[in-house]
Simulated assay, not measured.
Amino acid sequence: MRTDVTFPGAGPELAGHLYLPDGGAPGPRPTIVVGHPGSGVKEQASGLYARRLAERGFVTLAFDAAHQGESEGEPRGLEDPGRRVEDFKAAVSFLTTRDEVDPGRIGALGICASGGYALAATATDHRVRAVGTVSAVDISRQFRLGADGAQDPAVLPGMLDAAAKARTAEARGEGVQRFPLFPATEEEARRGGPHVFEGWEYYCTPRAAHPRSAKELTWSSVDRIAAFDAFRSIGLIAPRPLLLIVGGDAVTSWMSVAAFQKARGPKELVRIEGAVHMDLYDKDEHVTPAVEKLDEFFAAHLAG
């Protein structure tokens, strides 16, 4: 059963979908808060995982980040890593007030950029008892080094120059300055390489396009992203357990490997063979084994 909910964030009010298991034992129950990929919304990958895990007996919450989706916050399309981490903590706070939730058995799950945010939030929020990620990305590493880690070092300084000019333009009353996240056409997307095409196909075609999914970010997001490091405090997660799930063919998997290497406590890195990054967002042949592993992980570590 899905219920629309709203709850206080670190400023803007946040919107979410709360999923409850059908039938079975009454609450309070183990619960998982699920964060969406960068530019995503709760109706896409995070909602899919939340629903699938609720079918396995967990209470789950998929929510939209501040400034995105149905959540409040201006300007729209702001990607602020510090705020995204606080959004996770606000979601945990909300869950602790619900009768259906056992506040001592809350876990976190992050997909793509929210994988990095979930790790950062869990590191300093001891209410989160276990954390899992799917196709985890540290958004700062992606902007600095590229999805595959091989980006020209000159790209980020150029983006920071553009961000600085945009902030000046906004100060002069020229309005919020934004940049597109995806190519305009399939042809352009294919020229950008496999990972660019993956993103375009997921977010810009009937496969998963949603009217509230962000197609642009504000330029003021860029300097915020550049200063962030999702893995800086990952050692603080220990002794709580960590599960990282990646596609065996995902060009972004090196970031989950980096997180795994920095983590000190109980940890596991699982590869879903044959899957690329976004296959784990919605393709059942890859999502199902990921959900089965998450079910096993959270059932063990959020046990009564």
Rank of each mutant, 00 (worst) to 15 (best):
A226M: 01
S213I: 00
L20K: 07
T205D: 03
A209M: 08
A154C: 06
K262T: 04
T31W: 05
G107W: 00
V287E: 02
F260H: 15
E55R: 12
E296T: 06
I245A: 15
P266Y: 00
R224V: 04
G265S: 11
A25Q: 13
A120T: 05
L78G: 13
A120Y: 03
G247R: 10
D279N: 10
D64G: 11
W219S: 13
A227S: 08
F58W: 07
C204G: 10
D282L: 03
Y117M: 07
E216P: 04
G77H: 09
I245E: 14
V85I: 14
P239E: 09
F88L: 13
G16N: 06
R2C: 10
A123S: 11
D161V: 06
P12I: 04
L61R: 11
T218D: 13
G57H: 08
G11A: 11
D161W: 00
H286T: 07
A108D: 06
L217G: 12
Y19M: 15
L14T: 09
A154N: 09
A120Q: 10
R127S: 12
A227R: 13
R190I: 06
V257M: 06
E79R: 09
E13T: 13
K293R: 15
P8R: 10
D279P: 03
S114C: 13
A303F: 00
L95W: 00
K262R: 14
V59M: 09
S46G: 04
A166V: 02
P266T: 07
G175S: 11
R83K: 13
Q44A: 11
F94H: 15
E74I: 00
S253E: 05
L109H: 02
